[in-house]
Computed example of a mutant assay.
Amino acid sequence: MEILTAIILGIVEGVTEFLPVSSTGHLILATELLGYDAARWSVFNIAIQPGAILAIVVLYWRTFWAVGTGLLRWEANSVSFVRNLLIAFVPAVVLGLAFGDQIDALLENAVVVAWALIAGGIAILIVERLARTTNVYGIAGVSTAQSIKIGLVQCIAMIPGVSRSGATIMGAMSLGIDRRTAADFSFFLALPTLTGATVLQLYKHRAEVTGGDVELIAIGFVVAFLVALAVVKAFMAVVTRYGFAPFAWYRIVAGAAALIWLSSK
């Protein structure tokens, strides 16, 4: 039964990690809906996130290779690429370490997730309608000031249900960055952010993780990786054609349905 649970949650993670719908929020709602112990599975939910991140490494391996070789030659574009991501990563490190316990407490609150889904959906609709963007020609073209602001906006996603990808993409677009670059920035920023969050959570809860938990995490990791491989390509196709509005309306409907269901329990 626990293996089936790991597979289900791995699918949820793989589907939602890069969509602006909040993977953590969906994992929390899934554990609540299926009657799982939220505290029991909270570490698992964080630990399988790098599985989805690995999908980005595989899908964008040419970019990683180009940036890596460019750094060896100290090329300006590669240096700017890495600099911008590191700058955007810093706020999450500072606030994550400072408010780790408060963040952990929110990870078991499904009502917070439901309200955050609704609020985030409304925010996406507003940004989609009002943002005036221009092509900045990739992550290297993002300014230092913009990178800092994207990093600060990402921290809002420490509230489960907000969506890390949604916050960073909408934050970037509100700063005038084109949709494609905003999505790419979010994808690549996920690498240090979610890897750091996983390492921190596993370290904090290392005494609670048993051999069986490691096996379940490995299963969830692999499932999340395989599912995310398919979802990222589909996501970019939808965004290119329809924008982010479909995800906004989904968030609003899902959040409202969750609130109704939670209030009836």
Rank of each mutant, 00 (worst) to 15 (best):
I3Q: 03
I3Y: 12
L4W: 13
A6I: 06
V12A: 06
V12F: 08
E13C: 05
G14P: 04
G14S: 13
L19I: 09
L19C: 10
S22R: 09
G25N: 12
E32Q: 15
A38R: 12
R40A: 14
W41Q: 01
V43K: 00
L54P: 00
A55C: 11
A55L: 09
A55E: 10
V57T: 08
W61Q: 06
R62F: 01
F64T: 04
G70F: 07
L72A: 13
A76E: 14
N77T: 07
V79Q: 06
S80I: 01
L85A: 09
P91H: 12
P91W: 10
V93P: 04
A105I: 01
A105L: 12
L107C: 07
A114Y: 02
W115L: 14
L117S: 07
I122F: 14
I126D: 08
A131N: 05
A131E: 05
V136N: 01
I139W: 01
G141F: 05
G141P: 05
T144Q: 10
Q146L: 08
K149M: 13
V153K: 02
M158Q: 04
I159K: 04
V162P: 01
T168D: 05
M173W: 05
D178H: 07
D178L: 06
R180P: 00
R180H: 12
T181S: 13
T195Q: 08
T195C: 14
G196M: 14
T198I: 11
E208W: 06
E208D: 15
V209L: 07
V209M: 02
T210V: 08
G211L: 11
V214P: 00
E215A: 15
L216E: 01
L229R: 06
A234T: 10
M236E: 03
Y242M: 14
G243R: 05
Y250S: 10
V253Q: 04
S263T: 14
K265C: 02
